[in-house]
Simulated scan of single mutants.
Amino acid sequence: MALKVHGTILSPGVLRVVACLKEKELDYEFVNVNLEAGEHKQPHFFALNPFGEVPAFEDGDLKLFESRAITQYIAHTYIDKGTQLIVPDHKKMAIMSTWMEIEAQKFVPAASKLSFEIVIKPILGMTTDVSVLAQYEEQLGKVLDVYEARLKESKYLGGDCFTLVDLHHIPLINYLMATKVKALFDARPKVSAWVADILARPAWSKVQELLKHKMG
C-alpha cells in the first residue's frame, strides 16, 4: 500500500492526518510507533522524521512529516477524492491559509497544553499539573472569542464550507469535550454549533472508532 502513516493514534498530529485520509476516502497503512519504548528516537525513524516526532508519512517514495504539511499534500494530490478540503479560488485560499496559521499559532498552544494535562497525562499514568490550567484556559478563551466573531460571518472558520482549517481543530477539540474545558466552547453559541458540526462528521466517527479501540 502506497500510503503509510507512522505514529501513535493518541497523538493529535497523527489524528489530523488520519482524519484527512478518512475524509478523502483513501486506503492507508497505519504503522504504530511505540513512543514509550523510544521507537521514534531510533535511526530508522529519524530517516522518516529527523526530529524524531510523530507523525511521519509516506506516499510511495515521498516522505513527509509535520501533520499540516501532510494534510495539505493529501488535499492537493488527491483533490478528486472524497471531501474537497481546499478551495480553488486564490483569495478564498488566502483566507483559509490565514485561519490555518491561527489554528497552529494561537489555538494549539493553549488547547494542546490543556489536552495533555487533563486527558493524556492520566492515560499515561502521569499527574496533571493543576497550577497551569487556569492560565491556559484564559488563553484559550481569548482565542475562542475571536472564533465566535468569525463564525458570525461564515459557517466555518475558513469560509462557507468545511476545509482543512476545521479538520485541523478536531483532534484537540474532541479531547477537550470530555473535560471541564468544554464549558469554554459551550459558552459561545457560534463556536458551540461549529464544534457540534465538525465532530459529527462521518469521517471523524470512523477515527473515533480507532481511538475507542486504543483507549478502551
Rank of each mutant, 00 (worst) to 15 (best):
F30S: 01
K113L: 09
K22S: 09
W99R: 01
V132R: 10
K190V: 06
A110T: 13
L15R: 15
I123Y: 07
S154M: 06
K212F: 08
K4Q: 11
N34D: 15
P109L: 07
V143N: 02
L85C: 07
M215P: 05
A183Q: 12
K24D: 12
G60K: 10
G38M: 00
Y156H: 14
I170K: 08
L184K: 12
R188A: 00
L199D: 10
I70W: 00
M126H: 11
I198S: 07
G216V: 09
D129L: 00
I70V: 11
V191Y: 06
V14R: 09
H213K: 04
V108D: 15
E36R: 07
F185T: 10
K91D: 03
F51C: 12
A196E: 15
N174C: 02
D80T: 14
L151Q: 13
V195D: 10
L133A: 09
V195T: 11
F162C: 04
M215C: 09
E58Y: 00
K24M: 09
M177H: 06
F162W: 05
A178H: 14
M126V: 05
D27C: 03
T127N: 12
K155P: 07
T71V: 14
E101A: 04
P189E: 01
F46H: 15
P171L: 00
E53S: 13
P12G: 04
K106R: 09
K152W: 02
L124I: 03
W204E: 04
C20A: 11
L10D: 13
P88C: 01
E209C: 00
K106I: 01
H90D: 08
K190L: 03
H44R: 13
L176G: 08
K182W: 01
R150S: 14
L140T: 11
T127V: 10
L26P: 08
Q84N: 13
K41H: 09
K190Y: 07
T83A: 04
T77H: 08
L3I: 15
M93F: 04
F65W: 09
Q72F: 03
W204F: 04
T127D: 11
S205Q: 11
Q84I: 03
E209S: 02
L133T: 14
G158W: 01
R188L: 00
G82S: 08
W204M: 02
V87H: 03
M96R: 02
A2T: 15
C161I: 05
D80G: 08
K81V: 09
K182S: 06
R16E: 06
I198D: 07
S115T: 11
E153W: 04
Q72W: 05
G158Y: 01
A196G: 14
S11L: 05
A37E: 12
K190H: 11
A47K: 14
F185C: 05
D129G: 01
L21Y: 06
A183S: 14
Q84C: 08
